[in-house]
């Protein structure tokens, strides 16, 4: 069992958990992920490692409530235990001194982009970061991102905080004016990553995204996470999770990610109903 050491609510939908997982922290690197199962009956879901502390043998997971599994996780508290935390899985980010780089984080994607920005900064890059969310209440880690970035742009879709823009707008401006940009990392909702890809493509700017498709084992065994790329079908768990954004067939990927929409709805409804009954009872 994997004990939750610390819980911090980052926004209305996003919660941070520091979890004891010695066998993960020993080798964890930026860009990798873990498979987490909250309870015995729970799904196995992939979560990117947002940070890790080798001395404390803990990993930091940043969880956004999207379905029953993540809602349940966010309701758990320090002292509770997850049934499974397996990893580190997937390839780590290829960190080197590229020169000038851009790190784009959208919504919950700010969490996984943070250790990448930090590692790139430590490797000597000039790091430009762009973080954004739908509104101010969903934004988090502005200070942490600022600490590892040479420049930071913060935006919200609705203009409730800082610049009113989608992350692709400042990104496009940087690509127009800063020819020294060598590489872009973008992590966020699939639709955001798709538009980052279409934004950077005309500039031939190498762009890496971190995908989060539906998985079971996370070790290459089920193939459920597969995405179609220009190199053929690839498994996100073992070939990724990072991919060349310009090679991914985004529409096929997003359709696959929608496959269990009805089941997910049903699971949430039933669970909420049970929670209400428990409160009344």
């Amino acid at each position: 069992m994997y004990k939750i050491l610390k819980k911090q609510v980052l926004s209305d939908l996003v919660t941070l958990m520091e979890v004891s997982a010695p066998q993960v922290t020993r080798k964890a690197q930026a860009g990798q992920f873990v498979i987490v199962r909250a309870y015995e009956e729970s799904e196995r879901i992939p979560l990117t490692i947002a940070d890790f502390d080798r001395a404390a043998e803990s990993v930091t997971l940043v969880i956004q409530q999207v379905g029953k599994s993540t809602m349940q996780m966010c309701q758990m508290n320090a002292g509770d235990e997850f049934a499974t935390v397996a990893g580190p899985l997937g390839h780590p980010t290829e960190i080197e001194n590229y020169g000038t780089v851009v790190c784009v984080g959208g919504g919950v994607g700010i969490a996984p982009v943070y250790p990448i920005a930090r590692a790139l900064k430590e490797a000597g890059n000039h790091v430009i970061s762009i973080i954004g969310a739908r509104n101010q209440s969903l934004l988090f880690w502005e200070d942490k991102m600022r600490a590892v970035s040479d420049e930071l742009i913060v935006c919200t879709d609705d203009g409730s905080y800082k610049r009113k823009a989608l992350v692709t707008e400042p990104l496009k401006e940087f690509l127009e004016t800063r020819k020294e940009i060598r590489h872009i990392w973008a992590i966020g909702p699939a639709i955001m990553m798709k538009f980052v890809a279409t934004t950077t493509k005309p500039y031939d700017a190498p762009t890496t995204v971190s995908l989060n498709t539906i998985m079971i084992d996370g070790t290459g065994m089920c193939g459920g996470c597969r995405v179609l790329t220009t190199d053929g079908a690839q498994f996100v768990c073992v070939d990724g999770p990072e991919f060349d954004a310009h090679k991914v067939d985004w529409d096929v990927m997003m359709q696959r990610m929608q496959f269990y929409r009805e089941e997910e709805k049903l699971a949430v409804e039933q669970w909420k109903h049970q929670c209400q009954l428990a409160m009344v009872g």
């Binding site: 009956e41 729970s42 799904e43 196995r44 079971i216 065994m221 089941e263 049903l266 699971a267 039933q270």
Partner: peptide, 17 residues
């Protein structure tokens, strides 16, 4: 694996669809 290991045949009692 969904059906056997994750017990999806007992969805939604088990969470894996």
């Amino acid at each position: 694996t969904r059906s056997n290991l994750m017990k999806a045949y007992r969805f939604p009692e088990y969470d894996t669809p």
